[in-house]
């Protein structure tokens, strides 16, 4: 555990020092929230949560913030590879699993912190969380999204030599995952043939889980959400650990 803590601690120190990154990654979900939320609030009619589109969008933006931060944190291993720091870690008498777990928890922590900031900011624009229990449920889903997608980032980083493929992953994997997740619109409003695709997206269950926690309403049973995103987390962690073990420098 001390090694996991060491790696986690380094991640935290780097995170706290990177003010531009903190602000930069809050900006996008926040702008989405302001522009889309207030722009479409009067146009979009939703059944369920009192027809309030902003309230619908906030859980989606929290999930978005967690998603992007965690994938990015995982992929950062490529930088450690390029700047040589990974060697220092890998040549120490510690197991790769400890390093990977530390890195995953570090990334997940930063991601959850980023998501929480969106949540706090949304309280300022008049959003009310349904209940303390609901908040804890939402937090649980944020943690699962954070862990699974950091592990996903580590898995990708383990197979990539440099950052040139990063944009490709972002545009063709992460953004579609986000777009299909129902973070921006209710799944039920999609054409019938798109819905199965949405249900294949693990993030959908994360978003719905957070939405259930924060607003008390969701289109997918929260237990199903928990089971799916939980299994996804386990699969990603195992995959990430497996690929990280095979890194050759």
């Amino acid at each position: 555990m001390d090694i996991v803590y060491t790696i986690w601690l380094r991640n935290m120190k780097r995170y706290i020092r990177s003010r531009s990154r903190i602000i930069g990654s809050i900006a996008m979900p926040l702008f989405f929230l302001l522009f889309l939320g207030f722009g479409l609030n009067s146009v979009v009619q939703l059944s369920g949560i009192g027809g309030n589109y902003v309230a619908f969008l906030i859980p989606g933006m929290v999930a978005m913030s967690v998603l992007f931060t965690s994938v990015f944190s995982g992929i950062q291993i490529i930088w450690d590879k390029q700047f040589g720091f990974l060697k220092e870690t890998l040549v120490a008498p510690v197991s790769r699993l400890e390093i990977m777990v530390g890195q995953t928890l570090g990334g997940a922590t930063t991601a959850v912190l980023q998501g929480s900031m969106i949540l706090v900011l949304s309280v300022f624009i008049g959003f009310w969380i349904s209940s303390p229990v609901g908040f804890l449920i939402a937090l649980g889903f944020m943690i699962l999204i954070g862990i699974s997608f950091t592990a996903f980032g580590i898995a990708i980083a383990s197979r990539m030599e440099d950052m040139t493929g990063f944009q490709l992953i972002m545009n063709f994997v992460v953004f579609p995952l986000f777009g299909l997740s129902g973070a921006l619109f209710p799944i039920s409003s999609l054409p019938a043939w798109v819905r199965p695709v949405t249900l294949l997206d693990p993030l959908t269950y994360g978003v719905e889980g957070i939405r259930y926690g924060l607003t008390g309403v969701s289109q997918i049973n929260p237990l199903v959400c928990g089971a799916v995103i939980g299994s996804f987390t386990i699969v990603m962690t195992v995959l990430g650990a497996f690929l990280f073990r095979k890194i050759r420098l």
Binding site: K13, R14, R17, F83, G84, F85, K87, E88
Partner: peptide, 11 residues
């Protein structure tokens, strides 16, 4: 001590 630098520059 590796040929290429292996420090964390942010720390």
């Amino acid at each position: 001590v590796f040929q290429d630098q292996s420090l964390d520059e942010e720390l």
